[in-house]
Design a protein around this nucleic acid. Structure first.
Lengths: 347, 347
DNA sequence: TCCGACTATGAAAACGTTTTTATATATTTG
DNA sequence: CAAATATATAAAAACGTTTTCATAGTCGGA
């Protein structure tokens, strides 16, 4: 009934080596001075007994867990995986662990953050906010440990903040069509109109056209969400009717899913992509290179975001850095075939 | 220099409510009998002081962390995300957390498992093994807590085990071509020949052909890895030369990436897909529905695997279940367009 | 009215570390 | 050579809970 193999503690090691537990602790943590022969005795005992310090006791005593919480609204797409990749890389090389939590609605996010921090389960938290983020921020101002907010521009309080310049990204994608391809008819098909990312990207699009003296009027469309199906739908309903077979066009999509939907819709309507209509996506997700027509897209440095977020927390914990900071990363245009630059350029 | 807001402990609550810490603990954990008015006093104090029990102290005292470790070789593709989805769902509804760890090589996996278990950082571990898994298993037989092995058939020791019947999956995909489409010329293009999944799928393919009296000789090909590019390469080098324009063909691919590579290769060589050659993938990953020609593919119940894995650990921890078990899940054929069943069936 | 059983609560031990403080012993200094 | 100082180690306190054990107080029955 009790197969519970009681594990070996620092006391066992101390006894076996004929020293006190303080000495063992000093050896394990490389602290203070220990006579060479004593150290050897202790190290032998540790090896003999296969001793690993109990992390629960360490956590209590040291008042830290060596654990960072990563709170995301969902695990969909590959954003989460990339974020994890970067975060884990940085965390691992600093001996800290990552606990993944999911919290979608504002309620849930407030709950999870408060709980996890107040309980001392993590030493710091990386939070990817959902849409209603001002409500969340309002309530978590007084939490204890370091807190990094991702992807939403947060000016309040002493919070670290990492974001991507979406406006600039869409600006560059748009100017790629106007400048490199000499196209005057550029459209924008974004995600939900109330999404802050979409808003920023739409602004970049407008700014880009304005900067080359093109009227952006009636050239912006919005999907209900960031999905392939919505991209397909909007392309059929809004874009196709505007296409004149004698002109060339460019479309800046809100993300790669939408871009793919658009491309397939256009093709299904017999329109030549990318010869007559070039399309650019956003995110550089997996699907960008897993299609016949490789997607030109703006790459979001997601892995980098994860890495920096962990770095920020570690810095704050180590006391080296006390001031909160805001990091703004750029998206980068990855030119492939769907804009008309690539292998399918000349038919 | 010390903005460390020292958090409120059970002692503060006890003092504020005018009772002992044992009473507070009893109220918090709903244990033993507490007089209604005492309970009210304590609850008020808890609310007033915004008390959250320190999870580190709880962990030490209770000898558990309410944390499950999920060890994966990488975060690529969407396998990890789906696994996480299921695992988190089950974990969350049981009040346990998930710590994600990465360990790729055999060395690393042994290290991580031993460390995480011996330290008591997690109460149980879900382990997704890399290729050289016998070496790993050999060394981690004596670890303490519950351990669930994913995706590799493990017969040794007292380990829980969840796997997918890859043989049966490939069998069904193959028979779909022979039975539904009446195709005799079916090929298999798997991943690395030394991969156990590939081996099982290849066997399913051979068994299926044998079961309908077709000679599987010279119909199996292998990629160096599970990538789009390899699928493209093998299709060009091995498959295309075998295609006779008067015959119909079916191809069972090792995964969706390979399937996409094959399809694009065939199309680039001017072969009609799916009219002349049908292709089926494996995994039902994102890309299956993000292409113009929707992929027919075997869906692996990854989310379910995550859910069951967590369930197993929780059951073992609760002492309800003591015997290790092996769960074998089936892949399910998702019929879309690339096999020739769908919208593009008749040209 | 007295005794046993039960109830509500408090006191104290335990969990396994880290860290501070104390104490021998060895080494230097005047 | 005694006093001051270093050095190596041990003893004990602390971390914040849970849990066992002890102790008053209450109740019902003889």
């Amino acid at each position: 009934m009790e197969p519970e193999t009681t594990s070996v503690t620092i006391h066992n090691v101390a006894k076996s080596a004929g020293v006190s537990i303080s000495t063992v602790s000093r050896v394990v943590n490389n602290l203070g001075r220990v006579a060479p022969e004593t150290r050897k005795k202790v190290e032998n005992a540790i090896r003999k007994l296969d001793f690993y310090p109990n992390s629960r006791a360490q956590a209590l005593s040291r008042k830290r867990n060596d654990t960072i919480g990563l709170i995301v609204p969902d695990f969909e797409g590959q954003y989460f995986a990339m974020l994890m990749e970067g975060a884990h890389e940085e965390a691992n090389s600093n001996g800290v662990n990552i606990m993944v939590l999911k919290a979608k609605g504002a309620e849930s996010q407030i709950d999870v953050v408060k709980k996890v921090c107040s309980q001392g389960r993590t030493d710091g938290v990386i939070l990817m906010l959902s849409e209603l983020f001002d409500q969340v921020l309002e309530k978590i101002g007084n939490i204890s440990g370091p807190l990094v907010i991702l992807d939403k521009d947060v000016n309040l309080w002493h919070l670290d903040n990492i974001l991507v310049d979406n406006r600039l990204g869409a600006f560059e994608a748009t100017r790629h069509f106007t400048d490199v391809h000499g196209i005057k008819n550029v459209f924008f098909v974004g995600g939900s109109e109330h999404n802050v990312d979409t808003t920023a990207r739409a602004k970049g699009f407008v700014d880009a056209l304005a900067s080359v003296k093109i009227d952006p009027q009636d050239k912006k469309f919005f999907c209900n969400n960031y999905s392939y199906d919505e991209g397909y739908r909007i392309a059929c309903e809004k874009v196709v009717p505007l296409i004149n077979s004698r002109e060339h066009y460019g479309i800046v999509a809100g993300n790669d899913d939408i871009a793919c939907g658009i491309i397939d819709a256009l093709m299904d309507k017999g329109i030549n992509v990318p010869q007559q209509v070039g399309v650019a996506g956003f995110d550089d997700s997996d699907i960008a290179i897993h299609r016949r027509l490789k997607l030109t897209t703006m790459r979001i440095p997601t892995k980098e975001i994860g890495r920096i977020a962990v770095r920020m927390i570690i810095n704050r914990l180590s006391g080296q850095v006390s001031e909160p900071s805001k990091v703004i990363l750029k998206a980068r245009l990855i030119v492939r075939d769907s804009c008309g630059c690539g292998k399918n350029q000349n038919q």
